[in-house]
Design a protein around this nucleic acid. Sequence first.
DNA 1: GTCTATAATACGATAGAC
DNA 2: GTCTATCGTATTATAGAC
Lengths: 187, 187
Amino acid sequence: MSRPNLDNRERIITAANRLFYIKGYNQTSFADVANELEISKGNLHYHFRSKDDLLKAIISFRIDMVKGNLAKWEQAYPEPIDKLRRFVQMLINEEADIVRYGCPIGSLNMELGKFQLELRDLSRELFELFRRWLEKAFKQLGHKDSKALSLHLLTMAQGAALLTYVYADKKLLKAECNKIINWIEAL
Amino acid sequence: MSRPNLDNRERIITAANRLFYIKGYNQTSFADVANELEISKGNLHYHFRSKDDLLKAIISFRIDMVKGNLAKWEQAYPEPIDKLRRFVQMLINEEADIVRYGCPIGSLNMELGKFQLELRDLSRELFELFRRWLEKAFKQLGHKDSKALSLHLLTMAQGAALLTYVYADKKLLKAECNKIINWIEAL
DNA sequence: GTCTATAATACGATAGAC
DNA sequence: GTCTATCGTATTATAGAC
């Protein structure tokens, strides 16, 4: 591992987060996570009593990551239009992963909604963090329908990520992101 | 059942198709399907040797359904712009299911891509059927970038379905469909 | 074609030694 | 905190009677 000083709990979260994204939650077993880190399943159960428990920790971990990124962007991009541009840039930056595994937030929400009804609210918060931040930027640009605009931007981003993944075509992502940027600047 | 004269193979396909949509493929067991139809698991295995086999049959079943619908629309809507409108209308018609379970094509592609690499081509064909049909309509309207337009329309539709599902909000679907219709008519 | 019974495996979870 | 060993269960799949 690149960060050997992490304690196991953090290492488990890091590894499980990646595996849940790449393989999906249902297709990832405790054995998979344990093998990845070369620790025992019993150790895993010491840190997380159940798989449900681990999932909750992963979602919370992702929520914290998103909050952290948004806080950085808030500092780095004072202009609201640059905030919107930065959101789209995220898709470009994550191109390689999106092509192979889709959007981590969209795919998790899709998967959980079909069986984990209690966790839908928590995973939806990943969308809401971005949406509220985007809504604020639209509002600062003087738009009255800023909430609808934020939802529309998320819609286009999710659609772009899904189609890019299905067709495994990075050109598709680039083309859709250009359309989104044009839409933002034409508003 | 509403159609008691169907033989078991067809009844299995109908039931499994619905369960794979509602619960997801990985969360649907042979026992689930058998219980739904009140038949034995052994009977199920007589008609489909493996779960993989059943999945292939379901995808083929869906492909045939889409082909059938497109053939009907081809007859009913000679004007290309009406073809595009009809595609969007499909989302409105399926509102209740989309709110609860998402888009059947999008969610299946998302789920399969994460572990069933061999079946990605087959499930992608569900997108391609719609895309080629839409591309033809755009072409008839005189657009040179008809392929890009077809992909963009699919992108917006998938994004709308996903957000509608995540927020469980039918108003969101309606709003996004209106935006899509406006985009089509403004082209 | 449909059933019951059962094999074989994988998984989530627990107990107890260290 | 980490390990090994094991339990209980669910799941896919097969065998054989009817």
